[in-house]
Structures are given as structure tokens and as C-alpha cells.
Design a binder for these strands. Structure first.
Lengths: 189, 189
DNA sequence: ATAAGAATTTGATTTGGATCAAAACTTTGT
DNA sequence: ACAAAGTTTTGATCCAAATCAAATTCTTAT
């Protein structure tokens, strides 16, 4: 099982030595979570790195008492750290489980230690971050000038089944619109 | 001069060995560019990594014949690669010089080679990317639910003198609004 | 120094999506 | 299986920002 996951990750991003893989496997945990479990609470310093084997998560923060969802993660996605890497402030985000999920978790400190010990592991992680940057830029493009309809369509493109797995309110929030507007867009199809 | 730049970068992000620094210094070029010079053209495969010593750049892409600016870089900023790291497609962005500028340039291939040769260099680069991710998430937060006025204010906060250095149309585009709206916001102060 | 072209401002009008309110449907726990 | 709570839909109204249009100011090249 673990082998399959490692294989999937390293094939997609970058290969690592058997040694690095062994050390990595020592540190990760595979954990099952239940719907509505909170993985990270706003304000917490501890932050793990999550990879989703099966299930769905969201990350949100609070602004004017509204919960704003700005990241979903489904199968084979990562949830990257939300903290400022330079100043090391606490997490501004809460990460919540949206459906019963199986995750690979790795402590932030262990991740740093693996990066320090194994050059190839740090390389792998660097490539993963490059991918995250690319995704974030896509998302900015989407928010910057596309219509609500276009943004909705590309989300469905990326996650075809998200509608049945994630509450409409969270999807609306992610798209930067109200629930009512999303409901109407959906109805017009 | 080069020493000052290296010092600035490594102090802010992460230290590297004298050896890595030497190899790095062999590969970079310090180049002066003129206003309106194009550093990277949409569709190009070659992509350098830029660090701005003095001056200002913008990155934009085209959508429905409009130029959409989605990144500014001023002194001490980086322009990260805009290409998909996994699939290696050509750049979707054009990078243009906004005022006479002095830049540090590093070829993408040299950057990769330095990362491969020196673990500490790859570490430095990884930390830089983490910072970029943090900035991008801030920007998404800004676009997702803040009012135009709030977005404008935080841009001025980040780059106090941007108004006099960057055309209004580009700033408007970056904020995801029209020129006219930005002009009115400005007038209301 | 001046004309041509760019960039910015100002004005009038329209519109996409927000807000407020309430009804209909779904999920959850006992 | 049912009540209570949570989610989604539908309706009416309003407003921030877009669009279209034209006037003004700033830049640049000759």
C-alpha cells in the first residue's frame, strides 16, 4: 500500500533513492479520519503535510466572521503548509475533513529533517512546490478576470465529481461568490 | 556588488556554502535593461530566473486580446518561472521591463544544475519557492473576497511607490478591475 | 517646441452578482 | 421514523463595478 503511494508520487514528481524512501516511510503515518474532523486549527503552530489517498479536505480561514474556503484537496492532492515560511507565524487556516478520508501525514519537522538529510528528498519536495505554484497561478488567473460561469466550469473540469462531494457553500466560497449565485448558475444548466 | 546581493538573498532565505556561492557567481549575469525591453516572450521555451537589483518588471499574458498583468517585481523581488514544471510547456507569459533596470539573470538549466550539484543551493531555492507560495496565497485571498478599495490599499502597502512607477492600466489589471474604476478610486482620496 | 500618440480622468448608462428574505429539500441524531 | 438542524433553491431589490464615450493631461519623437 505504502509502496503504491510512494511509487505514484515519485513517478509523477521526481525519483528518490531507496534510502530516502526508507527514512520517509519511517516517518509517515497513514491515518483514517472521519467527516468533520479538524486536522489543523486556525492559530495552531503544529502543521503537518498531508497527502490524500482517499477522501476530501478543505482549508478555510475566517474573515469578518465568514469562513472562506480557499483550497480543496481530493485523491492524490497535497495540502501544503499555509504558514509564512520566513516568519514562522501560526496557521491562519483550519483544515477540515469533508468526507471519511485516508491520509498520509508527515510532521513538518520530519519533513524538514528529511530534506536536510537527503538531497533527493529535498529535490522531490521542491518539485512538488513548483507544481503548487503553477496551480496557484492558474487560480489567480481564474479569479482575476474570468466570469463566474467560466470559473465554475474550470473547477468542474478539474474535479468532475466535486458537486456531490463538497457542500455548495464551500464551492461558492472557493469561487469567490455567494451560495445563491452558485445555485442559480447550476440551475441554468 | 555581487557579494552584497548574495548576502542579501542568503540572509533573507537560507545560507549556502562558499563553494555553492562560487559556482553560483560563475553562472549569473548582471544585465542592464531599458524600459520596454522584453525579457521573455509568450510562447518561448527559454526561461531565465530573474532577481531585480534595481528597477521594475511586469509579467502578463493575453486573454481575449487583453493583456492581463499578474505579477510585478521591484527591487529585491524574484520573477519565478511561469511554466508548468511537470509538463514543461512554453511560457504563457511575457515579461516586460517597466523602467530602466538592473537584473541578475540565471539560466533555467544552470539553476537546475546548481540545485543538482549543491544540496544547500537547492534548499535555498526551495525556501524561495515557499515564500512565493505564501505571496500567491495572499494574493488569492485578496482577489477572492476583498473589495477593490481593500485590494488597492494592500498593494500600496506592499509597494508604496508603485503609482509613480507603473502605468495605471497595469495596476488595474493586476487588481482585476478596469482602469476607469482604479482612476475613480484614486480620485476619491 | 510642437504635433501625434499614450495614458488618465470624467460622465452617463448598464449589468452581474450581492443582499435580504423565505420556502423547499436533505441530513443527522435520538 | 421523526423532529431539529443544516443546505439548497427561488424571488425581489439594490449596488459596485463594467462598459461605452468623450475630454483632458502626460510622453515621446522629430
Amino acid at each position: 500500500m505504502i509502496e503504491d503511494i510512494f511509487k505514484k508520487i515519485t513517478e509523477e514528481y521526481s525519483n528518490i533513492s531507496a534510502e530516502a524512501m526508507y527514512d520517509w516511510s519511517e516517518k509517515i503515518k497513514i491515518v483514517a479520519y472521519k467527516k468533520r474532523d479538524i486536522l489543523v486549527k486556525e492559530g495552531a503552530y503544529s502543521h503537518k503535510f498531508y497527502y490524500i489517498i482517499q477522501g476530501a479536505l478543505k482549508a478555510y480561514y475566517r474573515s469578518d466572521d465568514k469562513k472562506i474556503t480557499d483550497w480543496f484537496a481530493l485523491e492524490n492532492d497535497f495540502i501544503p503548509s499555509t504558514t509564512d515560511p520566513i516568519h514562522g507565524r501560526p496557521s491562519s487556516h483550519t483544515i477540515e475533513v469533508l468526507e471519511d478520508s485516508t491520509l498520509v501525514t508527515l510532521d513538518h519537522d520530519d519533513l524538514e529533517a528529511l530534506c536536510k538529510k537527503h538531497h533527493d528528498f529535498e529535490h522531490l519536495y521542491r518539485i512538488i512546490l513548483s507544481k503548487v505554484i503553477y496551480q496557484l497561478r492558474e487560480r489567480i488567473a481564474s479569479l482575476q478576470f474570468r466570469t463566474v460561469q467560466q470559473r465554475y466550469d474550470s473547477l468542474i473540469d478539474l474535479y468532475p465529481k466535486i458537486e456531490s462531494r463538497v457542500p455548495l457553500g464551500d464551492i461558492a466560497s472557493f469561487l469567490g461568490i455567494t451560495q445563491e449565485t452558485l445555485s442559480r448558475i447550476r440551475a441554468s444548466k
